[in-house]
Design a protein around this nucleic acid. Structure first.
Lengths: 229, 229
DNA sequence: CGCCGCGATGATACTGAGTATCGTCACGGT
DNA sequence: ACCGTGACGATACTCAGTATCATCGCGGCG
């Protein structure tokens, strides 16, 4: 165990990168500078990170894999739960080490190259959601369009919550706002689930005047329970 | 007038770039190669295009400006029209020269760097829409979240229609599908406009048994007409 | 006619990211 | 003591992107 002697090189490299980016700016920092401060060589840097930007976005691949795994581990019935779980997974990852997220947020806000990189990452998450929802909706009408819209909305909801949390300095627990936002998304798209054949439904129900109140309530309840979770 | 003697250099450069990318691949083509085929120098290339990728995405900036202009030229009442118009603007631009769009589509599909670049461009459009919708919704509750979701959905709808059109080889008029998709988006988000205070409304209406059918119809109609356009 | 300004181009050199290759060293197993 | 094997360092190379200076064509203006 290296208790606190020398942390693994990848850590040293990442910390050196962030520190130098903060101090001197992103473009003004060369890979040689990073390697030098980390006490490593340029070669070693590129062995651990595919590019200079990768030093800022280390664990995106593992997170992406985790989201993918969570989505695959679900059947059609639990699709909504799987999606919300996956989104929570991502947000939780940011919240977990808030300082890192905040520093990265401020840095990304100033460097266009990093912003584009982050956007590309988000697109990969969106792709996962789109494919999952697409196979979920499979053969329903407009499946492709709906999958695209839902995936975009889910990701957008997450980003909205995350950005709010970051702007506030990571000072609160964003799981409440996330649930609110996801609930909003789900409610939005559920409206179009019910009327399978036609536009907005107008339901007129008639009961025998002699029907007991219980009978009426049971009939209504039976209809309400048709709604998916 | 240079009737057909020598087209402007920027054209020659762009065509040389696309041709070489098609023939030898993107990574295998250097800027020197492009300049050489266009009969120009490397310096000239970088004077006309900021980067190697820019040769593939020339008019994105002007399109972005056009979208921005269309959005700004609208008041709150015409917001929906402005958004749909702006989206139509973008799609029309792709349809206008279909061969170029198709070649680019096939190329972008094979080169990750170009894909990321395109995604970043899309994000800029989405940002415009988000800001516009945000100021439009201004002080309504959840304005930020809703702006984010609507912008993401509008852009996603456009992309879905565009990709379908491109995959089919640009062989039909996509304005029908676009209107369908946009209509879907608008309908989706309009559902949440009405219930201003509460969740989904459950309305139970009772009438005096002696009420005439006309009276019932009028009452229903009065409620239905409260719905916005 | 000659001079001048100016915009576009060409040529050269430089920085720095990313790749490839080879040598070296530490470490554990046999 | 021997031999993988994996991680690191060093070097060299390609190429994108930037900066700078020289050149050329061309219209205006004295």
């Amino acid at each position: 165990m290296n208790a606190m002697a020398t942390p693994p090189i990848s850590h040293r490299l990442a910390e050196a990168a962030v520190a130098l980016f903060d101090e001197n700016g992103y473009d003004e920092t060369t890979v040689d500078d990073i390697a030098a401060r980390a006490g490593a060589s340029r070669s070693t840097f590129f062995r651990h990170y595919r590019s200079k930007e990768d030093a800022i976005f280390p664990d995106h691949d593992t997170l992406l894999a985790a989201v993918d795994a969570r989505l695959r581990a679900s059947t059609a019935d639990t699709a909504i739960v799987a999606v919300t779980d996956a989104v929570r997974l991502v947000l939780a990852h940011y919240v977990q080490d808030a300082e890192v997220s905040l520093r990265r947020y401020r840095l990304v806000g100033r460097v266009p190259a990093l912003r584009d990189r982050e956007i590309a990452s988000v697109a990969r998450y969106q792709r996962l959601f789109r494919e999952f929802i697409g196979t979920w909706l499979a053969d329903s009408p407009d499946a492709g369009l709906r999958a695209e819209l839902m995936a975009a909305s889910v990701v957008a909801a997450h980003n909205q919550v995350l950005r709010g949390w970051l702007r506030a300095g990571g000072t609160y627990d964003p799981s409440g706002p996330l649930d609110h936002a996801l609930g909003y998304v789900i409610a939005t798209f559920r409206h179009l689930e019910r009327p399978q054949d036609g536009e907005n439904q107008v339901v007129v129900a008639t009961f025998d005047r002699s029907a007991s109140p219980q009978a009426v309530m049971e009939a209504i309840q039976a209809h309400l329970q048709q709604r998916p979770v």
